[in-house]
């Protein structure tokens, strides 16, 4: 959809005033203002984006500059951008709690550190290798690539991280969390939404929790690593390779615990823990712990 709007803006711009500056377009009574800025930036610059009023796409590139383009609807707020080569701050200053319709496309140096605070629309980020920290209220967050560390927080939005990072933090209240890739140090927490982890990379320390949502884990835990999963009544589904060496400790006080891996009972009486060790030896296997008040727990092979 952003593409269509930009195309429309471009068509109108060409039709009305081919060489016009944004101010002239505004004077023509168009409902939006075009942004087109470029600022020099160091490779490891720190970029802060306060887009309280719309959607943002941030992409890492191989230039020593930050480029910002997009459209700001009239009345949505005042665009600003400033700073130095090492630190740039940009955003939309608005007195409302999140006017819709602003669309920004920001390019940043690949190794930059990016901090974004947005209100109600999607934040999409890719190709950034520095630290990434994104917080939205009701917007969705999508991150791709290999940031050094990624932290994503949304109150109501969904979070999708297709990333490989040393440290991953995802937090939402009402939304779902989907992690594809993962590995390293991962913490994902939702209150009423689902948490889905599909690991392509080995997990070192993992903590997945939801109060009432489903938690699913599919991946491998490194030797000596830990995976802890907690829900209150959300179901839990854990799938590890059949040769995963680990100590398993699964308890549901009010729900059923079933197991399809060798080495442990297939089912236990309600409220009783399922504990067993599987894998070659128990010197340094992983620890997988699941605690739920009354969710059902399933353990199986991936």
């Amino acid at each position: 959809m952003p593409l269509a709007r930009r195309a429309l803006a471009l068509t109108l711009a060409i039709a009305i005033a081919p060489a016009a500056a944004p101010g002239v377009l505004l004077a023509q009574g168009l409902p939006w203002q075009r942004i087109d800025r470029r600022m020099p930036a160091d490779p490891h610059a720190s970029i802060r984006i306060l887009d309280l009023a719309g959607s943002i796409r941030v992409t890492g590139w191989d230039q020593d500059s930050v480029s910002i383009s997009g459209t700001v609807p009239r009345g949505a707020g005042q665009f600003y951008a400033g700073g130095s080569r090492t630190g740039i701050k940009l955003g939309i200053e608005t007195d409302s709690l999140g006017a819709p319709g602003v669309e920004l496309d920001v390019r940043v140096p690949r190794a930059a550190t990016v901090w974004i605070k947005s209100s109600s629309a999607t934040v999409t980020l890719g190709g950034v290798e520095g630290d990434v920290d994104i917080a939205t209220v009701s917007g969705d967050i999508r991150v791709e690539g290999a940031p050094r560390r990624v932290s994503a927080e949304a109150m109501d939005g969904d979070i999708e991280l297709t990333t490989r990072a040393a440290v991953t933090r995802a937090k939402t209240a009402g939304g779902t969390i989907t992690i594809n890739g993962g590995g390293g140090d991962v913490t994902a927490s939702s209150v009423s939404g689902a948490v889905r982890y599909t690991g392509a990379h080995k997990l070192l320390v993992g903590r997945l929790e939801s109060v009432s949502g489903t938690v699913t884990f599919q991946g491998t835990v490194i030797r000596g690593g830990t995976l802890a999963i907690e829900t209150h009544d959300g179901p839990v589904d854990v799938r590890v390779p059949r040769d995963q060496a680990a100590r398993f400790d699964l308890t549901s006080f009010g729900g059923a615990v079933t197991n399809a891996l060798a080495g442990g009972d297939p089912v236990v009486p309600k409220g009783k823990p399922l504990r067993f060790t599987s894998g070659a030896d128990d010197a340094g296997g992983a620890t997988v712990t699941v605690r739920t008040f009354k969710g059902n727990v399933r353990l199986g092979g991936s």
């Binding site: 209220v137 009701s138 109150m155 109501d156 209240a173 009402g174 209150v191 009423s192």
Partner: peptide
């Protein structure tokens, strides 16, 4: 809306 989400959760 945010307050409502917060309350709900």
């Amino acid at each position: 809306a945010t307050i409502a989400t917060l309350e709900r959760n």
